[in-house]
Simulated scan of single mutants.
Amino acid sequence: MTTPTVVLVTGVSSGIGRTTAEQFARRGCEVYGTVRNLATAAPLPGVTLVAMDVRDTDSVQRAVTDIISRAGRIDVLVNNAGMNMTGAVEETSIAEAHVMFETNVFGAMRTIQAVLPQMRQRRAGRIVNISSVLGFLPAPYMGLYSASKHALEGLSESLDHEVRQFGIRVTLVEPAYARTSLEANSPTAKSPIAAYDRERTASAAAVVREINKAPAPDSVAATIVEAALGKWQMRKTPPGPASLLSKLRRFMPAGPVDASLRKQFGLG
């Protein structure tokens, strides 16, 4: 009898994380999904829900210890938990930026540090960090979100070099827009500056248009599952706009890419 792959997915309350956990379960994996509040979390067939707040080191350590005590190991970690925020860089307070990085960067770092000891001991493991096309492209009025994803990309590439000696590999998945609550309900910076109103409004309208025509998170989830269980690649982009943007960034001159981005976001 084949031993199932043990998978930990963070942030499975909704959206990409929930769909990803479901797809891992359908592939026969033993899946653990984290939520911040077990009492309010909707059940997920085939997935064991575990309480975890990625912003709290003790919470992360407790959850990982609990999973290892149940399953004996963690083969795959998917760092999906994250948050977004809109607003000009000048409008965004340092405190708001701290919250963003606590979740998107340090949250991933906490879970990585919690699972790595047992992966190193077994000399096997796969870590999949959910980035974004904004991890390699700029995003006007989402500068802090983009910064957090750029940071996650640098962390992931460096980490992959460090842990390769132990049979562990790290992969980045870089989706574009998907119809999820994270993107549809992003908080805004609390101290707007009137001088940015016109372009901020145009940019927000462009994002809404993209989300409204974006696919459901199934294709992103499928890419994550393949990144975790298939042949290793440093970066994987879901089919469609994300793959196109990745190619444009790599092969087109910077000037046309810059002009295209400004046009898309309605900037003067």
Score class of each variant (00 low, 15 high):
E153V: 13
I193Q: 08
I112L: 04
S156R: 08
R169A: 09
R120W: 06
V170D: 04
D197G: 02
L155T: 03
E199D: 08
M119G: 04
P175D: 04
L172Q: 00
V173D: 10
A151F: 10
A114L: 05
G125E: 03
P140F: 07
A204Y: 15
Y177N: 13
R126K: 08
F136G: 07
N129V: 00
R126D: 03
G135F: 12
V115I: 04
A194G: 02
G154C: 10
L144T: 10
D160V: 05
A124K: 11
P192E: 07
R169E: 06
Y141M: 05
V207R: 14
T188W: 13
E157K: 13
R120E: 12
S191E: 13
S181K: 06
Q113P: 10
T201G: 09
R179K: 15
Y196L: 01
P138F: 03
S132H: 11
P117H: 09
A206P: 02
S203Y: 04
S131D: 10
G125P: 09
L159F: 08
A184C: 09
R122G: 03
Q118V: 11
V208C: 14
S146V: 03
A151T: 04
D197I: 00
L182M: 15
A114W: 13
L152M: 13
S156P: 04
N129Y: 03
V128L: 05
S131G: 14
H161L: 02
Y141F: 15
S203C: 12
R179L: 11
S148A: 06
L144F: 06
Y196W: 01
A194M: 00
R120G: 06
I193F: 12
R209C: 07
A195E: 12
E153P: 06
L152S: 12
L144G: 09
G154I: 05
N185D: 11
D197A: 07
H150N: 07
A124L: 06
N212L: 04
N129R: 01
Q121F: 05
P175I: 01
A147E: 05
V163R: 01
S156T: 10
Y145R: 09
G125Q: 02
V173P: 11
A176Q: 05
D197N: 01
L116N: 09
S146L: 03
F136V: 06
D160W: 01
S146Q: 15
A178H: 09
Y177F: 15
R120L: 08
R198W: 06
G125F: 00
L137F: 07
P138V: 05
V128R: 01
I130P: 00
G135Q: 11
V207W: 11
V115H: 01
N212S: 10
P175G: 00
E174S: 04
S203T: 13
A147P: 15
A204M: 13
S131M: 07
I211F: 12
R209D: 12
P187A: 10
A178Y: 11
V170P: 02
H161K: 09
E174T: 06
M119K: 04
H150E: 01
P192T: 06
H150I: 02
E162G: 00
E174N: 07
E153S: 12
N212I: 04
I130M: 08
A139F: 13
K190Q: 14
V173Q: 12
E183A: 15
Q165E: 08
R200D: 07
E210T: 15
A204C: 12
G135H: 07
L144E: 14
T180G: 13
E157Y: 15
L155K: 02
P138E: 01
G154Y: 03
A124Q: 08
E153T: 07
V170A: 10
R123T: 02
